[in-house]
Design a protein around this nucleic acid. Sequence first.
DNA 1: AAACTTGTTCTTCTTTTGTTCTCTTGGTAT
DNA 2: ATACCAAGAGAACAAAAGAAGAACAAGTTT
Lengths: 205, 205
Amino acid sequence: MKALTRKQQDIYEFLLVNQKKLAYPPTLSELCLMLGLSSRGSLHKHIKALIEAGLVEPIDRKQTGIRLTEKAKEPLLDQDGGLPFVGRIAAGKPIEAIENVSYLAIPEQIKTKNPCYVLQVKGDSMIDEGIFDGDWVVIEQRSEARNGEIVVALIDKSEATLKFIEQYPHETLLIPANSSMAAMPFLPEQVEIQGVLVGQMRSYT
Amino acid sequence: MKALTRKQQDIYEFLLVNQKKLAYPPTLSELCLMLGLSSRGSLHKHIKALIEAGLVEPIDRKQTGIRLTEKAKEPLLDQDGGLPFVGRIAAGKPIEAIENVSYLAIPEQIKTKNPCYVLQVKGDSMIDEGIFDGDWVVIEQRSEARNGEIVVALIDKSEATLKFIEQYPHETLLIPANSSMAAMPFLPEQVEIQGVLVGQMRSYT
DNA sequence: AAACTTGTTCTTCTTTTGTTCTCTTGGTAT
DNA sequence: ATACCAAGAGAACAAAAGAAGAACAAGTTT
């Protein structure tokens, strides 16, 4: 895939920034006006490059009124109110970090005033709590939890997992929500709390 | 389903905005006046597209003076990316509408390009699918579904419910995801699909 | 009965869109 | 210098969107 030229990057950035302000996807002529160009033909060459790069797609059927829209993958440019999606968590492994951090828009109702981040769940250890493989969870960043809360726990500084927690003076229990799995006892110093579950989301598409 | 053209979007939006001001559903001629057109024939082509998209429906009574009305499901139009939270759904009752519609910021990943809205679930009929009492669900507004999808179904024009659907020529099954509940058989004409589940969210706070 | 009005279907026409082309300009590297 | 490439302008084209109007069947009104 060829690298984008400077002008193409500019146009792509323009689309990212202005997309939400537009009532509908812009036509080439309209984009020319906004960008100060006077030739659809010139612009089309750049758009074509963006399409080949997978950053933009025609809105519809072939030669219909063809318009542009951002690709299904719309990374970046959320930030305002969005939470960082930082990685995947699977029981028994460290959190698998994501290369490019993206930001998700999260409803106020399922986050807190404190800093939060988003993980994707791998595995079925919380299935009885309605947290399935592939679900996203919103985690409030803190290092302490009350008994009965669901936490992201780091075990022996190596394994991360999502479990109910029960803390007693000389023992910490990490309890899966899966009838086929048993609670796991640890010494308090083995378990480091990295956050507490405050929300969960799932996509069916 | 074909995508709407620009003009069709404009007309649909016009209907959404002006619907409440009109005493009766408008005729084609009246709409022409309001929209500044001078040909019923041209307008009719656009309206036909809206009907096929399920966004509008004839007021029926056979061949009487036929008029248009927005479909039962019209309530949306997101507000800068947010989806409208329109009510609660409990098996066995109509959707309980919310007095003041609020808008929730929803991550791109759990909504679709088509109009969506948000309901809060009451009851445990989908518990085996990880959809619990109090969860929010994101519903894509459409009137048809494939077998195996989870839909908002209106039964006998009176009860709304969230269930798996299986449609056969002479029977429509609504299937709960709860081992203690049985599938419910209906005649196809008893069941009207109001939307399809595309996402789910839960707050733990 | 005749005189509307309704939705619907056609055909015709203009405007706009995406696309491809050629030509020109300016900057950069060899 | 020559060669190369990004970039813009503008012409030309097929296809689509949009608009206008004529014509028709069926209903309601006068």
